[in-house]
Amino acid sequence: MRCVILGSGNIGTDLMIKLLKGTDASGSGATPLELVALVGIDPDSDGLARAKSLGIDGPHEGPQWILDHADDIDMMFDATSAYVHARHYKEYEEANIVAVDLTPAARGPRVIAAVNLTEHLDSPNINMVTCGGQATTPMVFAINRAIDRLPYAEMVSTVASKSAGPGTRQNIDEFTKTTSMALREIGGAETSKAIIILNPAEPPIMMRNTVFAALPEGSDHDAVIESIFAMEKDVQQYVPGYRLKNPPVIEEGPFNTPGGVVPHRAVVLLEVKGAGDYLPPYAGNLDIMTAAAQRIGEAIAYHRADQKAGA
């Protein structure tokens, strides 16, 4: 599948380097994604210069360039901003270009790569929630599948100040609201909360995520732990730096959660170390987005190829 990346900032450039490796997100086969261009708006940007030095087209005409070359493009990854995506997403759809949206614009159905990867393969637009959502929703899902019901789930994401861009900073409510919604809609929690903290320590800290889950009376704790470990492996398939910093623990309450009083909680302490492709390893929050975007793009590509073969 022929694809372009829109946005020549940190995220777009990191995704470019991942795609140019030639291997798929799991690192085990060849990627079905053929990168045609990294599209920016600033001809002097470091990302576009990097693209050209790697032999990739690096136009600076923004969304218009994509639309002008629509016949040669099947998919676009949007690494700009919610505002830019909201303005142009219909045009991509009309031009028959699938959009994998890394911004919080939330125009298409939400996909968490380790949970509902195959649910929306025919959608013209996929939204990737948030970095914290990609990191923690899988664990909420893993806990929920091991118990009868999950009355409440909570995530706390701490990222290095240096890796939190102006988009996140100017609209931090968007991050917490969108992430919290994913914990319910995709993770399966009945109620939820998301928290984000920025830490300016030097050297910068690795991205940390903690998931707390309310365990009702009678929950099988061993099954919860086992399910968490299994999910760690699933996410590691496309984010090698994703790991449980400590083994998951079950703590005794009672806890007066918004979903009711529960006797126990599960605590999952995660660290995400980036692959260090373009961004430094501490920026695991950005790496998990680009790795998941590649994973999702490839799933769509395989699905399209299957459809063609079947037709």
Binding site: V156, I197, N199, A201, I205, R208, K245, L269
Partner: peptide, 12 residues
């Protein structure tokens, strides 16, 4: 150098 809000790191 934990900052305010990182109470989860206490368990860690």
């Amino acid at each position: 150098q934990a900052v305010g809000g990182q109470e989860d790191m206490i368990i860690d």
